[in-house]
């Protein structure tokens, strides 16, 4: 028991950034846009969040800065893809390359500085429940927020009219346009939301998961988030399950290293990446499942007059 609860707590911290990034990307994809720039937006969110907390000392502002940085970077993507009809794949890759460079440039003087981490909000009374209390009711605000986010997004997509419109735009932009919805405007906001969430994910990395800034600290988590969306077949609660599964794998890897299993640490570090491939293969092999669940217009450009 003494080891179990701290382990489970670290799994939650490892899963939270994946959850934010994947939920954001899922909304973007639901609107029919594939943004491969998650990694870049995460890194910019991470460096801006960390810089803000370093210079102002305010965690609230830092979280806001992470969100705004991701959303701001996604505007470039939105303008290129929606306004200039550029290839979504190429533009997303450009966003990642640019984000890696820009975050390294902005963060050059922040390397090696430490931060205490986001404060834990312990919920009185509930915290006193044995086992479950410490496990569920003593987290930072972004962990609570991530669960709330999944619930809200699930409700939004399935039970609200704007959610229905968003899905319509992603499944048939021509039909949605014919009915009179502003396809490009809706996609713009979906991209913005995805960017903001990726930024929050990055801020979580540099403020809570490992509270410091290192170049390229997201280490592929943005790409894992992209794979999680496929794994979850574009459903919010499955994104949650996937994120916790991957959080579990990355923590398992750390604990296996600590236990001194006779395998080089790098081999254990390969686990999350290999697991991502395995999971993708498992889900993708059923072509019908992908076809039924993927937004039909994903990756296709839309131009109102053509």
């Amino acid at each position: 028991m003494d080891i179990l609860i701290p382990t489970l707590l670290t799994i939650i911290t490892a899963a939270t950034p994946l959850l934010y990034a994947a939920i954001g990307e899922m909304i973007t994809e639901k609107a029919g846009v594939l943004n491969l720039g998650v990694e870049g937006m995460m890194l910019l969110g991470a460096v801006c969040g960390f810089a803000t907390v370093h210079f102002t000392g305010s965690a609230t502002l830092a979280i806001l800065a992470g969100f705004l940085a991701g959303a701001g970077l996604s505007i470039i993507f939105a303008v290129l893809v929606l306004g200039f009809q550029s290839s979504q794949v190429a533009t997303g890759l450009a966003l990642t390359i640019f984000g890696i460079g820009l975050s390294a440039l902005l963060g050059q003087n922040l390397v090696g500085i430490a931060y205490d981490g986001l404060p834990k909000l312990t919920i009185p009374l509930l915290y006193d429940i044995p086992v479950l209390g410490p496990l569920l009711f003593s987290h930072d605000i972004l962990v609570y927020g991530s669960i709330l986010l999944v619930a809200t997004v699930a409700w939004f997509l399935n039970h609200t009219r704007p959610g229905l419109i968003l899905r319509a735009v992603g499944n048939s932009h021509d039909a949605a346009h014919a009915i009179g919805y502003h396809v490009l405007r809706i996609r713009f906001f979906a991209i913005l939301f995805g960017g903001g969430m990726a930024g929050l994910a990055g801020a979580y990395l540099s403020l809570a998961y490992s509270p410091l800034w290192i170049e390229n600290m997201s280490a592929g988590r943005g790409w894992i988030a992209l794979a999680l969306v496929v794994f979850a077949t574009w459903r919010p609660w499955r994104v949650l399950i996937g994120a916790y599964l991957f959080g579990g794998i990355s923590i398992l890897q750390l604990h296996a290293q600590a236990l001194g299993i006779g395998v080089p640490s790098q081999v254990m570090s390969m686990l999350p990446y290999i697991a991502t491939i395995a999971v993708l293969v498992m889900i993708s092999r059923d072509r019908n499942k992908i076809r039924l669940n993927a937004p039909a217009c994903i990756g296709k450009p839309f131009h109102p007059t053509s």
Binding site: S87, F98, A104
Partner: peptide, 18 residues
């Protein structure tokens, strides 16, 4: 900083795509 290279490269691709 060396990272300026990456920023330049990313900008070049953005402008090209536009």
């Amino acid at each position: 900083p060396l990272a300026v290279t990456g920023v330049f490269q990313g900008m070049l691709l953005f402008f090209l795509l536009a």
